[in-house]
């Protein structure tokens, strides 16, 4: 290191901050931790008040709940009716198919050459 660089090193020697520096930093940390806790507590309280504290909206919410429930019930009933109609149709087709097969077999028997006319 040259003499000039030595001078530079002396000029830039470390200096200490104020005596209460550490205490100030620790106080800031404590304050920050405290404010985080308070903030969390505020958020929870806000959510709680939103859920529990807004009683004036209760009738509207109840009405909305009833409307949604009735609409859902009707939809469900409609689905059930549709299912039942489908079942009936399938059953009718099944019966008609069986009767048709029976009729065809009778016709075949009548037209058969093995029948002996006496």
């Amino acid at each position: 290191m040259s003499p000039f660089e030595e001078e530079l090193r002396r000029a830039l020697k470390r200096e200490e901050p104020g005596e209460d520096f550490t205490a100030k930093v620790l106080a800031k940390i404590a304050q920050e931790n405290g404010s985080i806790k308070v903030e969390r507590r505020n958020i929870l309280a806000h959510l709680r008040s939103l859920v529990l504290g807004q009683w004036q909206f209760a009738p509207a919410l109840l009405f909305l709940f009833v409307v949604v429930s009735v609409f859902g019930y009707r939809q469900h009933q409609q689905t059930l009716r549709g299912e039942a109609a489908k079942e009936k149709l399938l059953s009718a087709m099944h019966i008609a198919g069986a009767e048709l097969r029976e009729a065809q077999s009778r016709v075949r028997r009548i037209q058969s050459p093995e029948v002996v006319v006496q």
Binding site: L12, R14, E16, G18, F21, K24, K28
Partner: peptide
Amino acid sequence: HKGMVYSIAWHFLRDRPAAEELAQ
């Protein structure tokens, strides 16, 4: 390490209150 951090800020800024604030 407070001396190290404070001195970096002090020698750079040449403003003691700003250097102390920055070090904190």
